[in-house]
């Protein structure tokens, strides 16, 4: 997955941490930066230097958010990824809000939208729609909501999620398809 954030280096460390009772944030930092450099280099070859700035900045921002809480320790890698993905969601939603605000003075909600328009909406608008209903989905169907957070906002691959939850990749794909359906239905209802 081209745009996913690769946490394998960290997860190795967290794997050992899960047996040893937690690992402090400052020890994670150098590892995250290694990952970022790797990621940047990969994107550099794919899109040219300018393109590498976006995800780098994004992950950096996520890290700052995670590190804001002093003396934080991680129970296991699932704990780390869930929290990281939530942080990412916050950042991505903020960005999308900034963008739509810049563009049309924050009047997304007033527009009535039919089927076509939902699918044709710009990515940032879609992202905000997803964010709008995701909390509600979490109350109904926790598994689906968690998949969306990890995969969509956290950028984890099916494989990483499968490892995390100890299921097969095929199951993750199926859960993801169902979660999309649920969210889409809710968004549709919301805009009818």
């Amino acid at each position: 997955m081209e745009n996913s954030i690769d946490f394998t280096g960290i997860s190795g460390l967290l794997g050992t941490a899960s047996t040893g009772g937690g690992i402090p944030s400052e020890e994670l930092l150098p590892l995250v930066y290694d990952e970022l450099r790797h990621l940047a280099a990969r994107r550099m070859t794919a899109y040219g230097p300018a393109a590498s700035l976006q995800p780098t900045a994004l992950v950096h921002e996520a890290w700052l958010r995670l590190a804001q809480v002093d003396d934080r320790c991680w129970n296991d890698k699932a704990h780390f990824f869930r929290t990281a993905a939530k942080a990412m969601r916050g950042i991505l939603v903020d960005r999308a809000r900034r963008k739509t605000a810049l563009k049309r003075g924050d009047r997304l909600a007033e527009i009535s939208i039919d089927d076509l328009e939902i699918c044709a909406a710009e990515p940032e608008d879609r992202l905000l729609m997803i964010d709008d209903v995701l909390d509600r989905l979490e109350q109904q169907d926790e598994v689906s909501a968690r998949i969306v957070t990890l995969k969509f906002f956290g950028g984890l691959t099916n494989r990483q999620i499968a490892e995390l939850h100890d299921v097969t990749e095929r199951t993750v794909e199926r859960q993801w398809a169902y979660a999309r359906l649920k969210l889409f239905e809710m968004i549709q209802d919301e805009h009818e």
Binding site: N3, P55, L92, P123, L127, F153, G155, R180, F184, I187
Partner: peptide, 8 residues
Amino acid sequence: FFDFKPFD
């Protein structure tokens, strides 16, 4: 609807 990369 989900076919986009929020990172982009």
